[in-house]
Design a protein around this nucleic acid. Structure first.
Length: 468
DNA sequence: TCTGGGGTCCTAGGACCC
DNA sequence: TCTGGGGTCCTAGGACCC
């Protein structure tokens, strides 16, 4: 849990603030200035909005194939027990007369963008959690104050404006002193409702609730806690930190300890950098043909690479995911010495990783991912302390770069600089990865630079196209 | 023919380095 | 007779979220 509070050496005697065993005191806002907004039955609602004949009827959006699952069920379908993540097969048996739709993501993205745009017009601090959910920090909104009456009226108006900009979708909203409380609150009056949790009432609200209201408590943790006799948040509150850590691990235990006391100082964060990009697919029938699997991995590698390039990213770790016929899920990964966004590199590695796996029983899912994405501002990957490295001032000037490119090793496509004095091997668009090696100097460290960094103007290298 | 797809975060063990 | 210890990186798997 994020916790900027000052550190003490041990529990602070005589304070009323709860303190964990390392002496951290968690702070909570004094006002209900965190807003959580959740669009109701989002995908299904968009379908009903766009197709009037579906209004008032059960609609199920999700995978329509033999191995599909439900993404969203309209409230009419929920009356028949259809739920998110249920197999479509089961949903069909529970509600055969529902409309089963595969989903129209461009339409969902458009509606989502309208809502997120509205939220951002209200506060610069908006944190989307998915297409249909976001936190908004009202402490950064243009409000006269953060009194309950003020934020309540504001939230009601916001819900009305969501209805307008989406041409008829409804949203449920929660307001509270933290992300956790706001999120719990938005669940309490669904659909099309607003719940405000007044500061100071959080713990009374939580105590009777099941432990599963706490984000991060899924089926596995729920079961562990249940076996320890912990069913409600009140039960959790009565257990000390050591015991929780013993039960569910360090990070999780500490999180539970704090959240059970409504201690949550996680900030609303508007810009989060992607950490990985992946593509996977489940096939209607299990795959047994290795050549076919290699072909599918190659195609997925191309999709991943295209998405990396589209966002100006590249990454060093290539992973594959393989789900066997019996649902056993395997992953294998390999890390390159420099980042790539090249289809050929990702595909080659993905196929090599598959080669080590026994897939003779059949494969239901294949996937390819890239992680370890380059963060070029902070990342000086290979440090300054490389002894054989030429000093920056000695680095050769490369001004009119790059003509020929040859594959040297996986992940390293060597580009011969036109000036001829150094090696440049590059991968990411918008980034150049350079290793300097001249007649006068031994191979230097690998360095990566953003192409647009003005301080590196001499290195402004138009990279060759990859995988044309 | 039970069990999607795209993510995030955590844990644990081993390698490696100082 | 005793064989450190901490930090970081990498890999594999698992839980969880929407």
């Amino acid at each position: 849990m994020h916790n900027p509070s000052p550190r003490a050496t041990g529990p602070t005697p005589g304070t009323s603030q709860p303190v964990d065993d390392r002496g951290y005191v968690a702070l909570v806002r004094a006002q209900a200035s965190v807003l959580h907004l959740d669009l109701d039955a989002f995908f299904a609602a968009v379908e009903q909005r766009d197709k009037p004949s579906l209004r008032g009827k059960p609609v199920v959006v999700g995978g329509v194939g033999g191995r599909g699952v439900v993404a969203t069920a309209s409230y009419e379908a929920r009356q028949y027990g259809v739920r998110s993540a249920m197999s479509t097969r089961e949903a069909r048996s529970r509600c055969p007369h529902a409309a089963f739709l595969g989903g129209r993501f461009p339409a969902y993205r458009e509606a989502s963008a309208a809502v997120m745009g509205l939220l951002r017009s209200v506060s610069p601090l908006v944190e989307p959690l998915s297409l249909d959910e976001a936190f908004v920090d009202l402490a950064r909104a243009d409000l006269p104050d953060l009194e309950l009456t003020t934020v309540t009226a504001f939230a009601e108006e916001l819900r009305q404006r969501v209805h307008e900009v989406t041409h008829g979708l409804t949203a449920s909203v929660g307001l509270g002193t933290s992300k956790f409380i706001a999120k719990v609150a938005s669940e309490l009056d669904k659909p099309d409702g607003l719940t405000v949790v007044p500061p100071g009432t959080e713990r009374d609200l939580l105590r009777p609730m099941a432990v599963s209201v706490i984000p991060g408590v899924g089926p596995a943790t729920d079961e562990r806690l249940r076996r320890a006799g912990l069913r409600t948040v009140a039960d959790l509150e009565a257990v000390d930190l050591d015991e929780l850590v013993r039960l569910v691990g360090k990070a999780h235990g500490s999180g539970l300890w704090h959240l059970a006391r409504a201690l949550d100082d996680r900030p609303v964060v508007s810009e989060r950098e992607a950490k990985s990009v992946s593509v996977e697919g489940t096939y209607e029938t299990d795959l047994t043909d290795r050549r076919l699997m290699e072909g599918l991995l190659t195609r997925q590698a191309g999709e991943v690479a295209a998405r990396l390039r589209k966002h100006g990213l590249s990454g060093r770790t290539i992973s594959i995911k393989v789900r066997l016929h019996d649902f056993t899920t395997l992953s294998r990964s390999s890390t390159l010495s420099s980042p790539t966004d090249a289809t050929a590199t990702i595909a080659r590695l993905a196929r090599a990783l598959l080669a080590d796996l026994d897939t003779s029983g059949g494969v239901r899912l294949l996937g390819v991912g890239v992680s370890g994405l380059a963060d070029w501002i902070q990342d000086d990957l290979f440090g300054e302390s490389d002894p054989g490295a030429p000093a920056d001032d000695d680095l050769p000037m490369i001004e009119a770069p790059t003509s020929r490119r040859t594959t040297w090793a996986p992940g390293m496509d060597v580009v011969h600089a036109a000036m001829g004095r150094g090696w440049v091997w590059g991968s990411g668009r918008g980034v150049v990865t350079v290793r300097f090696e001249t007649a006068q100097t031994p191979p230097g460290p690998v360095r990566s630079y953003p192409i647009d960094d003005p301080d590196l103007a001499p290195w402004r290298l138009p990279l060759p196209e990859h995988d044309a």
